[in-house]
Design a binder for these strands. Sequence first.
DNA 1: AACCCAAGCAACCGCTATCAG
DNA 2: GCTGATAGCGGTTGCTTGGGT
Length: 343
Amino acid sequence: MDMAHERDASSEEEVMAGELRRGPWTVEEDLLLMNYVASHGEGRWNSLARSAGLKRTGKSCRLRWLNYLRPDLRRGNITPQEQLLILELHSRWGNRWSKIAQHLPGRTDNEIKNYWRTRVQKHAKQLKCDVNSQQFKDVMRYLWMPRLVERIQAAAAGQQQQQHPASAGADTPPMCHGGADDCLYYASPEELPADACGGWPAEYYAAAAAAGGGDHQMLMNSNNPAVAEMSGTTTAGSSSPSSDSGVVAQQPWLAPVGGAEEWFTAATACDASSAAVAMHDAVLGAGQQHQQQEPCLLGETTWTTASSELPELGVADFEIGSFDVESIWSMDDSLWYTQTQGV
DNA sequence: AACCCAAGCAACCGCTATCAG
DNA sequence: GCTGATAGCGGTTGCTTGGGT
């Protein structure tokens, strides 16, 4: 667009003239931005940048705020729950990062995009196939995702076991509102332990508190677009004619609640572990028949342990021969290990 | 200790969509 | 309806860091 080019050109001139800064943000800049947003609110980023005394473009300020300084951001590793959701939503919507991010409270589109590029594409590379190929999509759907479900179940089971005694609930850290093991959000940055679930660098806390902190409970109310859309209340506003309309409402495991912890609850009722075993055996041609169990919905796939029904899932057409299956099972095992240790 | 390399992530870029005057 | 400003999106780049040699 010509306008955009003109604006960029003028920005370039300003940079050359030393009027605009580029590159990594300093703590001072962050504090300026945080303080200004806390007292004046978001929006009008160009004038905000000028008014706040920041030698940055409005665009840069907006990005810094959205991707790094927002108090409702969730930091730390992408959890298996989130991985599962990303895989599922990406299979449905493709590279629509922003749309996917709406369903992962506290995560930014940039973060999800980076996750996809670094982790998922890495696995595709390891498997020597294109990340967009049907082959890799099958690997994700029939091997990786069931594996994630399995992990989540195991973590939930371990957690339940630990909490089941009389102390259940009493041990839940007061700052966690989304679950003891996997904090989804905090009521305020002050509550956020530096070593858990992420958060701002320590030096920001005092300034954030002084600035008023903003609306830290943003994620917890029904105004959260992710919550609203999951509940099916806003599906009419969907803009994608190809795949958006009403799909989420059909997902029993995407319950209309505020976080990955709770949407997953429905899925844990299914025996995805057995499904994963069945898939594993099926693709390896083990021919072992497993006990018939109730089908389990995972995304748009009906999971079953009955090998005779596998062709319906398309597994019969799934060529795994060239893949190192064990590498699939070990995907993100380091993350898995650290998380299970925390349970 | 020095170097290299790959991974991860923050930031930028180019572009389109939307809104207000 | 036109125009300019702003918001937002997805792709890409480049810096930092940690591990290996």
